[in-house]
């Protein structure tokens, strides 16, 4: 694989921490508390983000919100074109969705296709009262009518660029960077 060149760092560890704290407040505010709120992280980097958000919410409100993990592989719309079938992981949502407001959590919002797949995957698990969507970075270039309710950072990019949210749990470091694909 070609090595993408790192162009700019958008957020550092402190930046990510502050952003998540702000969004935790927004979730609490928007839902007037978190009594019926649950977080579902989209694999892979949405999962640690959801866990951190839950931690912040607990620190602020003193309430534990349930956290689930969603693997959207089987709901992707490009499977018939890929030569390598992506690996399927387990979905772990161990709470009933029926009366809940679900906040879907992901790292980057780009074309909107992942979010579309996540909505389908979630609805096959049950019928939530409502679904909200949180992303760390919205980089534009939407191909579907989808928007996020909570955005860490709006980041205009070119299509050649790649936005990479790196998290300690997976990447040993917390940062958000823009890299550029070689021509």
């Amino acid at each position: 694989m070609d090595v993408a060149k790192e162009k700019a760092q958008i957020l550092d560890e402190n930046g990510i921490r502050r952003t998540l704290t702000r969004i935790a407040h927004e979730i609490i505010e928007k839902n007037k508390g978190v009594e019926n709120v649950a977080l579902v992280g989209i694999r892979r980097r949405g999962v640690p983000l959801a866990e951190r958000l839950a931690q912040r919410i607990k620190e602020i409100e003193g309430t534990e919100v349930p956290v689930g993990t969603l693997d959207i592989t089987l709901y992707r719309d490009d499977l018939t074109t890929l030569s390598q079938q992506p690996q399927v992981h387990q979905t772990k949502v161990n709470f009933p969705l029926g009366d809940k407001t679900i906040v879907l959590v992901d790292d980057v919002l780009f074309t909107g296709r992942t979010a579309r797949a996540a909505l389908d995957a979630l609805i096959d698990l049950g019928r939530p009262k409502s679904i909200q969507f949180m992303v760390m970075v919205d980089r534009g270039h939407r191909e579907l009518p989808i928007r996020a309710d909570y955005v860490g950072k709006n980041l205009p990019t070119s299509k050649k660029e790649v936005v990479s949210v790196q998290l300690k749990d997976i990447d040993n470091e917390d940062k958000v960077v823009i890299t550029e694909l070689p021509d």
């Binding site: 693997d71 089987l74 709901y75 018939t80 690996q87 399927v88 096959d124 698990l125 049950g126």
Partner: peptide, 27 residues
């Protein structure tokens, strides 16, 4: 091992109420 790992995720679908995913639509 890949097949066994994938089967693990597939088994969850069988245990759901809605035992269907759209993966092989049109196949």
């Amino acid at each position: 091992i890949t097949i066994l790992n994938t089967a693990n995720a597939m088994k969850d679908i069988i245990k759901r109420k809605i035992k269907k995913v759209p993966t092989l639509r049109g196949r």
